[in-house]
């Protein structure tokens, strides 16, 4: 796959200072298309799909909202806290805005935690984007699958 002109524009939106202070690419100097291809390969290797990962993230987020900003226990093994800070964030693909909501999930069995946002859920579901390597908010597909117990799925 080649990097398209549209992808150039999206990649520009991901640079520091455009949407977030530090941008969404971290130290990753590759073309966006190469970042997407590598993560897609990783997701296939893990036997799941972007949609399945995003749905699991959404499921825990929606259950966590019931804690009204405090941490609650879900499925007897996750401590989930969902909260928001002021504002909205536009998606770099320019297909909408989402609330600045963050979701902290601690898996008690594995003793591992992960934090993600509504923007992550949207970007993974719609675009298969997990942020560039070295980005403060980069999510590794493997961490997501392991910590959130994402079920197997076809791409």
């Amino acid at each position: 796959m080649k990097q398209t002109v549209e992808m150039d524009k999206v990649q520009h939106n991901m640079r520091p200072g455009c949407i977030t202070l530090k941008g969404l690419l971290g130290e990753d100097k590759r073309n966006l298309v190469d970042i997407l291809i590598e993560d897609e390969g990783e997701v296939i290797r893990l036997g799941t799909s972007h949609k399945a990962i995003a749905e699991r993230m959404q499921e825990l987020r929606d259950s966590g909202v019931e804690g009204l900003g405090e941490s609650i226990t879900i499925e007897d093994r996750y401590d989930v806290r969902v909260d928001s800070v002021r504002g909205l964030l536009p998606c770099p693909y320019e297909d909408g805005t989402v609330q600045k909501t963050f979701i902290q999930v601690h898996n008690r069995m594995l003793k591992r935690s992960i934090t993600y946002t509504d923007l992550h859920i949207h970007m993974i579901r719609e675009h298969g984007f997990y942020e560039g390597k070295g980005s403060s908010f980069r999510l590794s597909p493997q961490d997501l699958v392991e910590i959130l117990d994402v079920p197997p799925s076809c791409m």
Binding site: G17, I19, T20, V85, R86, G87, L88, L89, P90, K100
Partner: peptide, 9 residues
């Protein structure tokens, strides 16, 4: 709240 990035309104 966003430091002038147009994300808090």
């Amino acid at each position: 709240a966003c430091g002038g990035r147009g994300s808090c309104g």
